[in-house]
C-alpha cells in the first residue's frame, strides 16, 4: 500500500547536511499495525509526518498504492490526504474553543459531509467511546485520557484507511494507555492500517510489526508474533 524508496530528509546547515532520515526503504501493507520505536531524535515523528503528507520536503520516492506522491498535483495530494489519513497527537491537540462534539465534527466539515450524515457518524463515535454525556464539554474540562479518546474519535471520524499516531500515550498513565491501545487493536481488527511512534515497548505488543529506528535509519524490522 505504501512504499518508501531510499528516502532522505536533511537540514542544510552552514557547513554540512544534518540527516534526520537517511536511506529509508519501507513497505507497508494494508492492515498492518506498525510500531516505530527508538530514542528521541531517531526520526520517528519525521517519518510519520512524511507518511501523512504533512511534510513534503524530502529526497527519494514515496509511492501510495502505485502512484508517486511527488508526481501528484496539489489538489490530488490534498484529496488523498483528506480521504486516507487520520492523525493522533501526543498532546491531543484538540481545539480549545470547540466542544467535544465540534472537535469530532471538524474533519467531517472539511470533507463536506452532509449535516445528517455528520450527526450519525458522530453519534456512533460518541457511543463507541462512551462519551455521549460529555459531548458538550470543552477539552479543558476533560482528563488527559478522555481528551485522547476525543483525539482518536476525531482521527477516525473521516474513516481513514491509515491512522498515524505520534506518541499517543506519551502523556497518559498506564491505565489510560492500555485503554487507548485496546481501541487501536480493535480498529486494527476492523481493517485500519495503523502506524504509531512510541517510547513504550509494551505498546508494541498490540501491533503486528515493530520497527526500531536510530539516527534516521531503520535498525531492525521484525514481525510480532502473538502467542
Amino acid at each position: 500500500m505504501i512504499e518508501l524508496k531510499n528516502l532522505d530528509k536533511y537540514i542544510e546547515s552552514r557547513f554540512q547536511r544534518v540527516f534526520i532520515l537517511k536511506g529509508i526503504d519501507l513497505t507497508i501493507n494494508e492492515g498492518e499495525f506498525i510500531t516505530l520505536m527508538g530514542p528521541s531524535g531517531a526520526g520517528k515523528s519525521t517519518l510519520l509526518n512524511i507518511l501523512g503528507l504533512l511534510d513534503e520536503e524530502y529526497d527519494g520516492n514515496y509511492l501510495f498504492g502505485d502512484r508517486s506522491i511527488k508526481s501528484m498535483k496539489d489538489r490530488e495530494r490534498s484529496a488523498l490526504h483528506k480521504s486516507e489519513f487520520g492523525y493522533i497527537f501526543q498532546a491531543y491537540h484538540l481545539i480549545d474553543e470547540l466542544t467535544v462534539y465540534e472537535n469530532i465534527e471538524t474533519p467531517l466539515l472539511y470533507r463536506k459531509v452532509s449535516s445528517n450524515e455528520r450527526k450519525s457518524i458522530i453519534a456512533d463515535l460518541l457511543d463507541r467511546f462512551n462519551m455521549v454525556a460529555k459531548k458538550d464539554l470543552f477539552p479543558a474540562q476533560l482528563s488527559g485520557g478522555q481528551q485522547q479518546l476525543v483525539g482518536i474519535a476525531r482521527a477516525v471520524a473521516g474513516k481513514p484507511r491509515v491512522l498515524l499516531a505520534d506518541e499517543p500515550t506519551g502523556n497518559l498513565h498506564s491505565g489510560q494507555a492500555k485503554e487507548i491501545m485496546e481501541i487501536f487493536q480493535e480498529l486494527h481488527r476492523e481493517g485500519t492500517t495503523i502506524i504509531q511512534a512510541t517510547h513504550a515497548r509494551e505498546n508494541a505488543d498490540y501491533g503486528t510489526r515493530l520497527i526500531d529506528m536510530l539516527d534516521g535509519k531503520i535498525e531492525k524490522d521484525e514481525a510480532i508474533i502473538h502467542v
Binding site: 504533512l54 490534498s78 483528506k82 481545539i95
Partner: peptide, 16 residues
Amino acid sequence: NKEVGLRKAMGAGRGQ
C-alpha cells in the same frame, strides 16, 4: 499557529 496546524492536519484546505 497550533490551531492552524491542527486544522491543516485534519484536512483543511487553504480556502477553508
